[in-house]
Design a binder for these strands. Structure first.
Lengths: 189, 189
DNA sequence: CGTTACATGTAATATGTTACATGATTCC
DNA sequence: GGAATCATGTAACATATTACATGTAACG
């Protein structure tokens, strides 16, 4: 049970609907956790039943009504106890790394396609995170924001996401270069 | 179904027992995939039934007998078709990021403990990967190995693992410094 | 007039985790 | 004498994915 904590953390600073939490998991939060809409809705229902979040109906016109959730005192206590326990080590799962692991047995052109796609994806995601960071900073420069900004948690995790995607991008570039050079060497021989 | 491809990729360059594959998933392979022994044994059984790997019994004295597995032609074809399809984007799951996301609502000392633990873990893992890289390179320097080494796939994925853990380590250090400075500023006021 | 965004779920299936089970050998 | 390594699983439970279901409104 750990999705619950990711959901609680996402709801800490603002009231959000299930739909918005879902969006967060598809974008920013996805940087450290991943979940499908169905899981988010199910988890919110469970959290509400257990009193860790409280929902309120918001009637809308022109679009479906929604329910906004906020973290309760009990929810915050749950997060505190979660933070007291040792974190499980990270858990990375990347198809592309499996494919590169097998690189010596696979077609270079096919792999290069995959690496090119991932390069573009990483670049786009890094840019998105960078924009979110700019928005959070507002008018302050980074050092000043980190010193005196109201909330730095989401900023620090977002920065990790940006750097992660930058590293992915650079790695894709390097791997493509290595595969290209090895092919050139083979063709010479 | 993707664990199967991670297992196949791990078996590409050498014949391994289920136990050894398990060890690989606990160490190096864990850098891009993660699985418990039970899953590995179950997956190997399934792969063998489907003809993607072939196992052979090795009788041992002083220790239990074992079965060594190698990838078959069909197994390699399966990997090729896996590489032809677009890779799913990475999938990161890190408790500590959830905890830092909530940093502004949690106790700094508790979080610092978590960050210190993770810092040490990342450092140790990066060192382990570095050692594996040295072993793979042998006497060659990196550039030469990448140009002319027999198999570079495992090297390239291991390098990504090393850099990932180095980035984690640096991030932990930076986050602790930010939290420390903010507390100092608060205590002054 | 087709697609995307908004908004929320259920049901069936696949995958992953936890607990349990066994038993010899080597290292501290 | 106790823990770790070698070696392989089964069974029960929890979590995640895929497919399906519904309906309005804004955007191009």
């Amino acid at each position: 049970m750990a999705l619950r904590h990711a959901v609680l953390a996402a709801l800490l600073d603002e009231e959000l609907s299930g739909y918005q939490v879902t969006k967060a998991f598809a974008a920013g939060v996805a940087n450290f956790w991943h979940a499908l809409p169905q899981q988010v809705y199910a988890e919110l229902a469970r959290l509400e039943k257990e009193g860790l979040v409280a929902g309120r109906e918001v009637v809308q016109e022109g679009r479906p009504n929604k329910r906004l959730f906020r973290v309760t005192g009990e929810g915050l206590a749950e997060l505190e106890s979660f933070a007291s326990a040792a974190a499980k080590p990270a858990f990375l799962r990347e198809d592309l790394l499996v494919q590169v692991q097998a690189a010596d047995h696979l077609d270079v052109d096919v792999l290069t396609e995959r690496l090119t796609e991932r390069y573009a994806f990483a670049e786009a995601k890094a840019a998105l995170f960078e924009e979110q960071l700019r928005t959070m900073r507002g008018e302050l420069d980074e050092a000043e924001f980190l010193r005196s900004g109201a909330r730095v948690g989401p900023y620090l995790t977002c920065r990790r996401g940006r750097d992660f995607e930058r590293a992915n991008r650079d790695w894709c570039r390097d791997v493509m270069e290595v595969l290209r050079a090895r092919r050139a060497a083979r063709e010479e021989a």
